[in-house]
């Protein structure tokens, strides 16, 4: 495994990609705060949103240091989150999809948590100390996200006939977005091919196991929605950013 040059722009893009996934996912989860199906679950999902925003900040802060070292720019975690347009965002489409009902939210959470968990497991061994440290901290959080969301997938899949129908509909709605998780963008070549295969195999294994217990099926459809990693997004991201970035855009240069 070659060691990355610190100012490698692919590496910076990779950090932004990781940060964007965490931030947009956190944003979607935070929309539930105050509206969950039970007080306990409101609190649980907010904990996940808080972990994700923490992860996003770690990735952005690191990216900002590297960007500033290699240029005259003065990027911060906030300029990266609030002052880039949709085409600069490199998150997977899956994380920006609307929440839908609790079932679809849980399903998205499970699919992305499984992905992030196995990804961070690998990243904590990578030969970049800072990134490895962020991954090592995050993987503990992901361990819980994965467990929590998997439990809920099983509850809802193997619950009532209504909940099963809702989960089946949710799978139909989002499955085509899962392929993008494993379509490797150029800036992702920090991960060796072996690592990429390992993550993918572990992910599909986990999905199969949990879906099995949940009495849910993986769809046959092979249609793949893609583009997020390269900055070509769904219509939804624009609205997320319009809302999220409003104050920073309306009152530029202010301290908050």
């Amino acid at each position: 495994m070659k060691i990355k040059a610190k100012n490698d722009s692919a590496f910076i893009q990779y950090l932004l990609h990781l940060g964007d996934n965490a931030l947009i996912m956190s944003h979607r989860n935070s929309e539930w705060c105050g509206h969950g199906p039970a007080l306990e679950q409101d609190i649980a999902l907010t904990n996940i949103a808080l972990d994700q925003i923490g992860q996003a900040r770690n990735f952005y802060q690191y990216a900002a240091v590297l960007i500033n070292e290699s240029s005259n720019e003065k990027q911060t975690e906030d300029s990266l989150a609030y002052l880039r347009d949709a085409w600069d965002f490199k998150n997977c489409l899956l994380v920006e999809l609307p929440n839908g009902d609790w079932g679809q939210t849980i399903l998205k959470q499970f699919l992305i948590s499984a992905y992030q968990y196995y990804l961070y497991l690998e990243l904590q061994n990578i030969q970049d100390e800072q990134l490895a440290a962020i991954a090592a901290k995050s993987v503990k959080e992901l361990n819980y996200h994965l467990r929590w969301s998997a439990d809920w997938v099983m509850r809802l899949g193997d619950g009532t006939s209504e909940s099963k129908k809702r989960m089946t509909d949710a799978i139909d709605a989002v499955w085509s977005y899962t392929y993008e998780l494993f379509e490797v963008a150029e800036y992702e070549n920090i991960l060796s091919v072996e690592m990429q295969c390992k993550i993918r195999e572990a992910w599909i294994e986990k999905i199969k196991t949990v879906f099995g217990k949940a009495t849910l099926a993986i769809p046959n459809s092979q249609w793949k929605q893609r583009g997020g990693k390269l900055g070509v997004h769904t219509e939804h991201l624009g609205y997320i950013l319009a809302e999220m970035q409003f104050l920073q855009r309306a009152y530029p240069g202010s301290e908050w």
Partner: peptide, 27 residues
């Protein structure tokens, strides 16, 4: 909760999210 998605910085967003979550805990 209205302002969680519009909080003007990542730090403020995290603080507000944690605060509103605390209210759920208090309830």
């Amino acid at each position: 909760g209205n302002w969680i998605t519009r909080a003007p910085s990542l730090k403020r967003k995290a603080i507000l999210l944690a605060k509103v979550q605390d209210e759920a805990g208090h309830g």
